[in-house]
Each structure stands twice: as C-alpha cells, then as structure tokens.
C-alpha cells in the first residue's frame, strides 16, 4: 500500500550517503594510492592508536600480524590473519576512520592507506600501488575459512529431553570467578562483592576514563564555553579534561594554561619536538595555544598530535574558553 509519504532522493543526495563498498568492487570510486603514500598518511593519522607497525597501542585494534594464531589460546585477528575481504578495509577506513575524525580521508588517501595496510601484512611489496582497476584481483588469505551458520546441525541443537532427576552422581566446583577478580569494584553497591586474592589474569590494561563535565563558575561567556565543549568533541578521542581527567593517547588538559609545553605530569608519550619546544621556553597561553591548534605541525614539526588544526577562529576561541573553564 502506498501512503504518499516521503519524496524522491536526488542523485546528489544518494551520492553523498551511498559510499559503501562491496567485495565485488561495487561502490569503489576512481582513484589510487601507493604503499609509500599510505605510510606517510598512516604515520600522521593512524599510528598514534594503531602503532607504527599496526601492532596497536594499549587496547586499540591490532591491524597486522597474527598469522597462524587463529587456533591458539590468544588469536590475533588482523586484516592479514582474519579479515576475509579487502573491500572491508577500504570501506571501513573511508567511512569511520580516523577515530574521532570520520570521513575526512579522500578516495586516493584511502587507496594509499589500504595499500600500506596490505604492506604491513606482508601481502604486497613496498612499491605496490592499489587502484580501482586492480582492487578486485586481490584476495586476502583467510577468505576461504568462513562458512555460514550451521548451528542447527550442531550437537547442542539436536532436540534433547532434559533430565530432571538424578542427572549426575556428584558435582564439584571447577573454577571460581573470585580467584581471578577482574570484577570492577562498586563504591555505591548495596552489598559488597566477592573479595579477590589475585590480580587480573587478562592482558587488559585499565582504560582511561571519559572526561566528566564539570560546571565551574569562571568569568567567561557561558555560551562560548558551551560551544567550545562541542568543538572539543574533535579532541575527545585523545584528550580528557574535567574533574578526574586522566592521560589518554594525549595528555589530559586540566590546568594546561601556564604549563610549559611537554611537561604534563606523568605523561610519557610526547614527541621529541614537543619536549624541545618546552625546553626552549614554550609555555601554553591563550596565544600559543591558538597558534598551535590552528596548525599544529607548523608550530611543532613532528608533534604526535594527529590533528590537522582548527580552521575557524570562532572554534579556536570557543575551545580555548572551554579549556579555561575547566577546573584548576
């Protein structure tokens, strides 16, 4: 039944949103990129989370290696070891990466990054160029190892009559969660949870916490601060600010004004250039911060901050107002 609702989409509208790519190449745009171009983009935009060689920083996804681990107790599922189709890499990088700055990569940049990720996985040589034309010739090594859901044929599916009485002779406890003790503590719990005896068994590292928004009473324009909070979304993937903020990929930004560059307490991931700038006397003020945020790499050449810069002066002023309104 037709309800006469909605309207026809224009070709431009469909083109703006329909950017997905399939294994058979449907949706791939014109373009190309080389491994070496990809390396440059990767180092600037991706390595901060995924590591220089795709090995990952902290709990961020590992992108390379892991071949021959899929049957081990700790499988490492990477593009090279697990992903069935290269189109998935292109599609995902293009639509959702870099984390916190999605859909900022051009088609050629995406081809180049995909080529570099293939290189990191030993799938191509360093002089390889990926193009729309050669894309669908490429097969990833694990493609054949996927098969459709077959649960209905598995042993746990077959109709069973559940036993109700005298089902087994004796029962022993074989494992206890309290021994592992990875359950987060709950300060507000109505009842205490089990006490543990050992430390975490997982390889997991504690993740950093989200910035808590804190209302203070600064002598600034609240509307500007509010706008700055929105602008700060661009920064949130790497920086925390506010009460209890901790270092993430980048240092926390509490009390950043007045601080010498490259000296946030306990932050160890500064670039050499940033530390040097601090040693040469760079202190964060409204002026120096505005200059840095406008074009980070123009001020600190090899800063690890993977951010192109804020183009609009309004955004700059707003985010600085927001940072200044954060607790001392």
């Amino acid at each position: 039944e037709s309800y006469g609702l909605g309207r026809e989409a224009t070709p431009d509208e469909v083109a703006a949103w329909d950017i997905d790519v399939r294994p058979d190449g449907l949706g791939l745009p014109e373009g190309s990129g080389t491994v070496s171009d990809g390396e440059e983009i990767y180092m600037e935009r991706c390595a901060v989370c995924h590591g220089d060689f795709g090995e990952a920083v902290g709990r961020w996804p590992v992108l390379a290696g892991g071949q021959d681990t899929l049957t081990s107790a700790r499988p490492v599922k990477t593009i090279g070891s697990y992903w069935p189709y290269l189109s998935t890499v292109w599609d995902y990088v293009h639509r959702a990466m870099p984390f916190g700055d999605a859909q900022s990569l051009s088609n050629d940049e995406t081809y180049a990054l995909t080529a570099y990720l293939m290189y990191l996985n030993d799938l191509v040589d360093e002089d390889f160029e990926l193009t729309k034309e050669n894309f669908t010739e490429i097969r990833l090594p694990n493609e054949e190892n996927f098969y459709p859901d077959d649960r209905l044929e598995s042993a746990v599916w077959k109709n069973r009559t559940p036993c109700m009485t005298n089902c087994k002779p004796e029962v022993k406890i074989t494992a206890r969660a309290a021994v592992i003790d990875v359950t987060p503590d709950d300060p507000t719990a109505a009842h205490p949870t089990g006490e543990g005896t050992e430390t975490k068994a997982e390889t997991a590292e504690p993740a950093t916490e989200a910035a808590t928004e804190v209302a203070s009473a600064p002598a600034v324009d609240p509307a500007l601060v509010e706008k700055g909070e929105k602008v700060f979304k661009k920064c949130k993937a790497c920086h925390a600010v506010g009460e209890g903020a901790k270092h993430k990929i980048g240092p926390h930004l509490n009390d950043v004004f007045g601080r010498t560059a490259g000296t946030a307490d306990g932050f160890k991931k500064y670039s050499k250039d940033m530390v040097k700038a601090g040693e040469e006397g760079l202190v964060w003020t409204e002026e120096t911060m505005a200059a840095f945020l406008a074009k980070p790499k123009a001020m600190i050449k090899r800063t690890k901050m993977a951010f192109a810069g804020l183009k609009k002066e309004d955004d700059l002023n707003a985010v600085i107002a927001y940072l200044k309104a954060m607790p001392e």
């Binding site: 709990r59 987060p184 997991a204 993740a207 989200a210 993430k248």
Partner: peptide, 18 residues
C-alpha cells in the same frame, strides 16, 4: 542510587567505543 548501568573499564580502549 546504586541501581545503575556499569562498565568494565579494562574491556575496551576508550569509553567512546565501549
């Protein structure tokens, strides 16, 4: 007040994707 959603911080890299 104790009735609330809770996370397991060590599970993921960042609360934005968690």
């Amino acid at each position: 007040a104790h009735v609330r959603r809770r996370d397991v911080p060590w599970l993921t890299a960042d609360p934005v994707s968690s």
